[in-house]
Amino acid sequence: MPQHAAAPAAPAAPLSPSSALTGTEASRRLLHPESEAPALTLWGSSSMSSEGGDEATAVPVRIHEHLALAAAPAPVHPFGVGASWSRHTLLQRGLDTPTLIGRGDPEPGTSRLEVTLDSGLAPSGPIRVPGRVDGVDGILDGSSGTWYFTPSDPADAVTGGVFVSSLAEIAEGSRQVLWMGKNNIRDVEGVLEHTARMAEAAAPGDTLVLGHWCTEHDEAGSATGAAVAEVNAGLAEAHRDHFLDVQHLLTGEEGLASSPLAPLQLLEQGTTHDALARAVVPPLLIASDGIHLNGWGNLVLSWAIVRRMQELRWL
C-alpha cells in the first residue's frame, strides 16, 4: 500500500516579546542593565563607611556593597570618611571652597606643601580629598593630622590658592544618601544647616537623609542623647519621606523583628529590653567599639535603605 508523505509541519508561531524573555526580572536587570540609571553617592562619616561591619556576621556587611547590588547598574560612590564632621562633608562635596595658606616651601621632589585652611577647618580622620588649587590637580590630605596639598605633577608646585574638590564633579547629577554629623552632633544647628546645604546641592527628590542612633554614650537624659533627638526631629521635619529614622529602626519592634534580624530573636533577649529602657540600640547590633553598628546592624540598615529607595521609586 503506498505511503503518503507526511504533511509539512505548520510554521511555529512567532514569539511575542514577553515570551522571548528568559530568567527572572532581577536576573535580566543584572545581565542586561539599563544604561540611564543615575549614580548613587554616599556621604558621611565612619558609619557610612561601614566601620564595624566586619563583626558578628559570617561575612562582613558593607552598606555600599548592598546598595551597589540593589542599584545596579547605577554606579555607587562611597565617600564616607571616618571621624569626619559635617563641615568636612561640605569640603568633599565642593560646597566649601577654602583658600589654602601655605606654611613654608613645597617639598623638593614631590612639591607637597603644608597648608592651613582659611575657614579654620582642622583635619579629622583619614580624610583625603582630590581637587584643584587654582587649576592645579592634586590631593588635599589631612590623614596625618596636618593638611598637605600634593600636586599630581611635582612640576606644578603651588604656594596656596583656592581649593575646589573634584568629588563634586563625580557626584554631579547623582542621587545621594547622607549620614553626616554624628561626630559633631551637639552642634545641632550646624548639622541641620550642613545637611540642608548638601540636599540643596542635588536635584529635588534626589536625597535620602539617614537619622542618627543612640549608643550607650547617648542614653536618655544625656546631652548627646538630647542632641541626637533634636537633630533627628529637625531632619524629619525638613526631609519627610526622604528621611529614614534609624533610631526607630534599631529600637522599634518592626525593625527588631524584621526578616534580616530574625535569627537573633532580639525581642526575646533580656539585653535588648535593658537597652530599650535606656533608649539605646541593643548590644547585639553594635560593634565591640560601642559606637558603630556591627554586621547585623549594617544588614538591617541596608535592608531599610533599599526598601525606602523602592518607596521613593529610585529602584
Rank of each mutant, 00 (worst) to 15 (best):
A6F: 01
A7W: 00
P11V: 01
L15T: 06
S16P: 00
S16A: 13
G23V: 12
S27A: 14
R29P: 08
L31H: 14
W43Y: 13
S46K: 02
S49R: 11
S50D: 09
E51D: 10
D54C: 08
A56K: 01
V59G: 08
V61K: 10
A72G: 02
P78H: 04
G80Y: 00
A83K: 13
A83Y: 10
S86Y: 06
S86M: 04
L91V: 09
L91Q: 10
L100Y: 02
R103P: 00
P108T: 15
E114S: 05
E114Q: 14
T116F: 00
D118P: 00
S119Q: 10
P123T: 07
R128M: 02
P130M: 07
V133P: 08
D134Y: 12
L140Q: 07
D141M: 07
G142Q: 05
S144N: 08
S144P: 03
P154M: 06
P154D: 05
P154I: 02
P154Y: 04
V158I: 15
V162Q: 13
V164Y: 05
L167V: 11
A168R: 15
E172K: 15
S174C: 13
Q176E: 13
Q176M: 15
V177R: 01
M180Y: 03
M180H: 05
G181D: 02
N183A: 01
R186F: 05
V188Q: 08
E189M: 09
G190T: 15
H194K: 10
T195E: 04
P204E: 13
G205H: 14
D206K: 09
L208C: 06
V209G: 07
H212Q: 12
H217D: 12
E219Q: 12
T224H: 12
E230Y: 06
V231G: 00
N232R: 01
A233G: 09
A236H: 00
R240A: 14
D241T: 12
D241Q: 14
D245Y: 01
S258N: 12
L261P: 01
P263V: 11
L264W: 14
L266Q: 11
L276G: 07
A279Q: 15
V281S: 08
G290M: 11
W296I: 04
W296T: 02
N298P: 02
L299I: 07
L301K: 06
S302M: 09
R308T: 00
